[in-house]
Computed example of a mutant assay.
Amino acid sequence: MAAGHRIVLFDLFGVIALQQRPGSLARMAACCNAPTDAFTTAYWELRPPYDAGRQSAPEYWAGVLRLLSRPADPGTTEELRLADIDSWSRVDRRMVSFTRSLRSRARVAVLSNIPADHADAFLAAQPWMHSLDLLALSGKINTAKPEPAAFHHCINALHAAPADFLFVDDRAENVGAARAVGMTAHVFTGLDDLVEVIDSWLATGAGSPTASRH
């Protein structure tokens, strides 16, 4: 398989970008005078349609506030929306550098669960991402991991075969979903381990027994 056909497909949060800022959910809960535990439950339970672009930010936040029996006034929903975007805004600089350097050896793409308004803000703050071969952002493509459609979107958009991909994600559920559509996939635990996995995969070919053990 030609090197130009090999594609490293990265998750964003927990891999290239950092996870949500510690304490963010408690601060958002305080914005609407809600208990942190109840806010956290509502925040995550209602998230999937928002992540997948099937619900707007105002619709999502109105739903969260309604579940918490709090008024969904425009000022509160916008305060929560902006606080939420900021909470997911950090990147791992070492991973950014590695991702950019990898483009000399393979095509590089991102498949991330991220609402559309978050995606706009993130890309504005991280313009280097526009140079990647594909940005498959769930709020923009209307499907989210671990749905098979999210992976097939990447396959079709890059005119590739599943075996052309090495998918890297910190969630085992998403790695399993990628393998189910025929991709090689790796559960991300850190850069040092990832470098070894990618070097081996590029040296031996996508879908090799060595690569697929990870």
Rank of each mutant, 00 (worst) to 15 (best):
residue 152 H to C: 07
residue 83 A to D: 13
residue 145 K to C: 04
residue 127 P to K: 00
residue 115 P to H: 04
residue 93 R to N: 15
residue 25 L to H: 05
residue 152 H to V: 05
residue 117 D to K: 10
residue 68 L to K: 07
residue 200 S to A: 15
residue 144 A to I: 09
residue 52 A to T: 01
residue 164 D to E: 07
residue 194 L to M: 06
residue 116 A to W: 08
residue 51 D to E: 12
residue 205 G to Y: 06
residue 77 T to Q: 09
residue 207 G to T: 01
residue 197 V to N: 07
residue 35 P to C: 02
residue 92 D to C: 10
residue 112 S to L: 03
residue 143 T to F: 08
residue 139 G to A: 08
residue 205 G to N: 06
residue 196 E to C: 13
residue 48 P to Y: 09
residue 200 S to N: 12
residue 134 L to C: 08
residue 144 A to F: 04
residue 179 R to N: 01
residue 135 L to C: 06
residue 110 V to A: 04
residue 86 D to W: 10
residue 134 L to T: 08
residue 54 R to F: 12
residue 81 R to P: 10
residue 82 L to T: 10
residue 206 A to I: 14
residue 68 L to P: 02
residue 172 A to K: 12
residue 116 A to H: 09
residue 117 D to A: 11
residue 185 A to V: 05
residue 13 F to K: 10
residue 165 F to C: 01
residue 94 R to W: 12
residue 164 D to G: 05
residue 177 A to H: 08
residue 117 D to E: 13
residue 104 S to A: 15
residue 127 P to Q: 01
residue 115 P to Y: 07
residue 5 H to A: 14
residue 89 S to V: 03
residue 57 A to I: 02
residue 207 G to D: 00
residue 20 Q to D: 12
residue 13 F to I: 05
residue 139 G to Q: 07
residue 188 F to S: 01
residue 120 D to N: 14
residue 64 V to H: 00
residue 143 T to W: 04
residue 74 P to E: 09
residue 176 G to C: 13
residue 87 S to V: 03
residue 186 H to K: 10
residue 111 L to F: 04
residue 118 H to N: 05
residue 117 D to Q: 11
residue 110 V to T: 00
residue 40 T to S: 14
residue 46 L to N: 10
residue 185 A to S: 05
residue 151 F to E: 01
residue 97 S to V: 14
residue 142 N to R: 15
residue 82 L to V: 12
residue 55 Q to L: 09
residue 146 P to N: 02
residue 207 G to L: 00
residue 7 I to K: 06
residue 99 T to Y: 05
residue 113 N to V: 03
residue 144 A to R: 11
residue 148 P to K: 07
residue 124 A to V: 09
residue 181 V to T: 03
residue 38 A to C: 04
residue 65 L to D: 08
residue 142 N to I: 13
residue 98 F to T: 00
residue 167 F to Y: 12
residue 121 A to P: 06
residue 103 R to W: 06
residue 73 D to Q: 12
residue 104 S to C: 09
residue 28 M to T: 09
residue 51 D to H: 09
residue 9 L to V: 07
residue 161 A to N: 15
residue 161 A to D: 15
residue 39 F to Q: 06
residue 84 D to I: 08
residue 81 R to L: 15
residue 112 S to I: 05
residue 78 E to L: 14
residue 61 W to P: 04
residue 116 A to M: 11
residue 23 G to S: 00
residue 93 R to I: 14
residue 93 R to V: 15
residue 133 D to P: 03
residue 18 L to C: 13
residue 213 R to L: 15
residue 168 V to L: 08
residue 209 P to N: 04
residue 97 S to F: 11
residue 183 M to E: 07
residue 112 S to V: 07
residue 11 D to F: 09
residue 84 D to R: 10
residue 151 F to N: 03
residue 129 M to C: 11
residue 26 A to H: 04
residue 109 A to M: 01
residue 116 A to C: 10
residue 59 E to T: 05
residue 112 S to D: 04
residue 154 C to H: 04
residue 101 S to V: 04
residue 55 Q to P: 10
residue 164 D to S: 00
residue 170 D to N: 00
residue 198 I to W: 11
residue 158 L to A: 08
residue 160 A to N: 06
residue 10 F to Q: 03
residue 17 A to W: 02
residue 163 A to K: 14
residue 157 A to S: 12
residue 197 V to E: 03
residue 156 N to H: 14
